[in-house]
């Protein structure tokens, strides 16, 4: 899947830059530690936008394309920030046969973002995930730590509305 690159302006703090600087200083002599640095950078920033990848590439003395290639290959790296409410729709086998794709499509339609994306107001981000271990409730989605099971596409809009109201 092609990852969605966020258009939300990057807002890094000097503290975050300092933390990433310390990580890079620790690993910059070993290019094979690129993924370690990227993982730690994602913990610091929540995702790996252009500005952070440039810091990593320059700091590790590696081509930016190398960093980007790794970030788009592994599912664990995000190029979009997580929204205030992070939605993840299970596309595991059980959920899929019970119609999870329809749930995902409905959310995409309602929010105007593809999996991997984040709404421009930063409220919702959307991801597809594999089996969260609640097959008995299929199809299932999670919003932050809340689990919603036995879903039908028409139930999606009211649930999202509930979050929008509390935001």
């Amino acid at each position: 899947m092609v990852k969605k690159i966020s258009k939300i302006p990057f807002e890094g703090t000097p503290e975050q830059a300092q933390q990433l600087g310390a990580v890079i200083a620790q690993y910059k002599h070993d290019p094979s530690q690129l993924m370690t640095v990227m993982q730690k950078a994602q913990v610091i920033y929540g995702y790996l936008p252009y500005e952070v990848q440039v810091m990593i590439a320059d700091g590790m003395d590696l081509p930016l394309e190398r960093v980007y290639g790794v970030s788009t290959f592994y599912a664990q790296f995000a190029l979009s920030p997580a929204g205030k409410y992070s939605i993840s729709v299970c596309l595991g086998t059980a959920c899929y046969v019970k119609g999870a794709q329809g749930i995902l499509d409905r959310i995409t339609e309602l929010l105007g973002i593809a999996p991997g994306g984040c709404t421009e107001d930063g409220l919702f981000s959307l991801d597809a995930c594999r089996c969260i271990g609640a097959c008995g409730l299929a199809p299932v989605m999670m919003i932050n730590d809340e689990v919603y099971g036995n879903l039908a596409p028409d139930q999606v809009a009211p649930i999202l509305e509930k979050y929008r109201k509390t935001a």
């Binding site: 899947m1 081509p63 394309e65």
Partner: peptide, 11 residues
């Protein structure tokens, strides 16, 4: 190294 393989699988 300004070009490389990006994304994965069919993409």
């Amino acid at each position: 190294s300004v070009i490389g393989a990006n994304a994965r699988g069919f993409d």
